[in-house]
Design a protein around this nucleic acid. Structure first.
Lengths: 224, 224
DNA sequence: ACGGTGTTGTTGACTACTCAAAGTTAAAAG
DNA sequence: CTTTTAACTTTGAGTAGTCAACAACACCGT
């Protein structure tokens, strides 16, 4: 059984590798993601390599093996199912479930997870719109685009928010900017790096860093 | 924050102390309950003592302090609420929830626990009939007696089963001998150390060690 | 080709928990 | 009152994970 620490390293590697398949992850990058000293990351990656979870190239970096990726997907599945469960069944706020799930994901058994999955009706996204991998490790790839790429005047639906920080999520929640919300792009102010959207009769202006964390549904007619 | 290990030692001490208030718990007894070497228990009790959770008398034994007892009750509360939740909400079998809860009890936050409590309608017993301490650490003391003390011909209701072993619980479940079940004492065979009870039209004979683990409701007219 | 710069690897040390084995002590048995 | 015994404590060592600090290295620009 992989320890919580091992699971966290593997999960972190999985997210770093996202979007740059095959590339090596530098020890420094891993260390800063894990908030540990560089030497700690090196030592840990060696043991991950011994367990066959990563390939390690001395002074090059590391990448997940197939086994490592499978483990990572299992943890991500746990995490997101737990988040969905905490929101839907226990009524917690979407801004606080990430931290809770961070703990629970290492402890919940497969049996309990299956029951949760069933109780929720086999959801395919979590409260932030992140896709829940299947038990077999498949992740659905729904086409999305960043809110910043929506043309002014266009109406769209929020699909996903790629930030787990409670303060940010609480803010979005208060403005009604949650997955499923129907919004209209009003204005894009490039020099000011801000956009203004209309949600439920209210105009809201967001800075670029916030806008880039909001993904919206991609309309069929815009697909490549 | 107390580690899982610390929590397990404190919980174990709490159960050992049950029914002999004030008495010292010997290191050997603690060690065998925790399935560790005697020296390990000694070492751990010293650190518990440093944290103010137990009083330790060298070559005498130890006992929980008020802080230790409070922590123990919080863990027992967690454990039993989680068991009830796993059975009632997720539909797990009562024979398998003990092990699950054993893991989860160290990780569930107070917030999640409160939601579970609320969802279950503030239950006062777990699936085995064990009382769930309140958040303030109060344990309800419902009067019960052992099934072995019920007179032949008398009808009663199973209230509690004081054994968490899956095999035993599965057996009881299959016979319908679960908390809430209405049973009638048929025969007590003292030389054979067995009793025969009637449950839902079926006669079932149980050995003494099994019978002693089954507690039944004590009728008002038998109360002291 | 060469040296500076920043990243990486190694070393020694620390915490928390564990064991085996040897040493100590209290108390029962003679 | 002494011996034996059983329980207890101490000691030395090991694992997992961590850090700080130093050493080794690769690469970039000159």
């Amino acid at each position: 059984m992989a320890s919580s620490t091992v699971e966290n390293y593997v999960k972190t590697l999985y997210f770093i590798e996202q979007g740059r398949p095959g590339a090596l992850v530098a020890m420094g990058e891993l260390a800063s993601s894990m908030q540990v000293a560089p030497g700690t990351a090196t030592a840990m990656v060696k043991t991950l390599s011994d367990s066959g979870l990563v390939e390690y190239e001395r002074r090059g970096g590391c990448r997940l093996t197939q086994n490592g990726r499978t483990l990572a997907l299992a943890i991500v599945r746990r995490h997101r199912l737990i988040e969905q469960f905490l929101v839907k069944t226990l009524g917690l706020d979407w801004s606080e479930v990430h931290e809770e799930a961070e703990q629970l994901e290492h402890v919940i058994s497969d049996k309990v997870l299956d029951r949760i999955d069933q109780l929720l009706g086999y959801p395919d996204v979590d409260p932030h719109g992140d896709p829940i991998p299947t038990a077999e490790g498949r992740v659905s790839a729904v086409p999305m685009e960043s809110l910043q790429d929506v043309a002014p005047g266009q109406e769209t639906v929020i699909a996903r928010v790629t930030d787990q920080k409670p303060a940010f999520l609480q803010y979005l929640d208060a403005q009604g900017l949650v997955p499923g919300a129907r919004i209209t792009m009003q204005r894009i102010d490039t020099p000011a790096d801000s956009v203004t959207v209309l949600v439920a009769e209210n105009s809201i202006t967001l800075g670029g860093s916030a806008v880039r964390k909001i993904l919206v549904e991609r309309r069929a007619d815009k697909m490549p």
